[in-house]
Design a protein around this nucleic acid. Sequence first.
DNA 1: CGTCCTATTGATGGGGTTCAAGGCGTGTGG
DNA 2: CCACACGCCTTGAACCCCATCAATAGGACG
Lengths: 255, 255
Amino acid sequence: MSPQNEITDVAYTPLVTRLSNYARASKQDLARLDTVPFQQRKCEPGDIIVGRGDSITDVIFMISGWAARVRYTKGGRRQIIHILLPGDLLTREVFVIRRSDHELISLTNTVIRFVEQKDLVDLFREAPDLSTALWWAAEQEEGILREHIVRLGRRSSYERTCHLLLELHRRLVLIRQATESVFVLPITQAEIADLLGLSTIHVNRTLVKLRSEGLIKQNKRIIQILDPEAMADICDFDLAHLHLDGEDVDRLMED
Amino acid sequence: MSPQNEITDVAYTPLVTRLSNYARASKQDLARLDTVPFQQRKCEPGDIIVGRGDSITDVIFMISGWAARVRYTKGGRRQIIHILLPGDLLTREVFVIRRSDHELISLTNTVIRFVEQKDLVDLFREAPDLSTALWWAAEQEEGILREHIVRLGRRSSYERTCHLLLELHRRLVLIRQATESVFVLPITQAEIADLLGLSTIHVNRTLVKLRSEGLIKQNKRIIQILDPEAMADICDFDLAHLHLDGEDVDRLMED
DNA sequence: CGTCCTATTGATGGGGTTCAAGGCGTGTGG
DNA sequence: CCACACGCCTTGAACCCCATCAATAGGACG
């Protein structure tokens, strides 16, 4: 397992940890997700998991590492649409749509799990709450997409960078891969640029600024959030779009 | 019914017309959607259909007019996340989530339809293809969101505007509210600006440029696309993200 | 017939891109 | 073991796209 995954919850796969943030599904039901037959595959940085236009047949889950949904313009510019973390669903559309309209790539060393549609459908029949839990995860991703749109359309480079760091941190906390203020950001500044719709150079300058203003501390790929309140204030961050229930938010705060 | 909706398909509601673009559901099944008990409401431009943080109880469909999902930054800037047209679902998340993380507003005079969750669930039990059809519509919206992200992150104002016009035109064709090259764009330049992450003034200049270069013709709110190939080439438009099946694309081309 | 909303145009300035170059760490092959 | 290459980070300088400020014109409406 790769270094950035050492903080994982040993009792369950990240998938269960992730979905346990949805209060309406029981941990027993969720644990059944790990009993479905599957195949796993290891990927390296840059590997294409699903290409644009590829037909989709299996449900794919992230087990470890970071991946991304990306699109390219004809001019060769790249936009990262969404970052996928352990526990995330890569091919939710498999139930309704034949082909992917975007590309899924591995950003770090990753492990992904392939589950056949019918096996999952069988499980849903036995434990309908699981279907809802996956649907919740899908809705959460869409909330993040909406937030991403606001970030790209109406925030400055400075605000965007703050916002991204806070959001990733929060998502990592949800899967127990970050402490209160520290997390590993295993992607390059060029990839951050493609996420935020900026140039690599400007991302660099912005990170320098965040450091010089004492908002974050950075040691290589390790980020420490020094002043979360100030940062949240700068970029207008709130976590409503993650759709956590009240009780869950409270529980997270205790950690 | 408001002026911009005169080109509707009289046989079915826009909802059925819209979903009939999904090949796997039969027209008979789709027509049953109109038999579900409902309540309708008229809205005027600016009306808030669902506020941020409001609890969601019913499934809401667009019947006529244009609406939008919007978010505001603390600084008062506005970002339009998605345009909703007749036949679109406004509150898909109702099955999993309690509160809306964004605001739904009416952009024109609109008619919206409220359907109770349980009535829809009952119908799904009788006609499971309908559930899939609605899921397809949701997936199509997410495809449009992904495209929107690319547009905001990696395209110039000129490309963005081209792209938006082509996309709206295509979506209107799908619900029989546009001819081959003409459609009504019933929103202000300020609203286009909030969609594209630009200033009103710059949207104006960009539209002037599109007109002066002979790409579009505009008479008040009526847009004619004069050179669709050139425009598609400029902004790298393709309609893969609308997830139409091959046969449907062919059918559209014949129209 | 003023008032308000929308579209339009000019002038100015700034946030972010682009071009260019150097530094640092790591791996690799002679 | 060193030389060199390569990926990533960093910094400087010039430029440009688009925002902002300011002002006018054209309806629609009471």
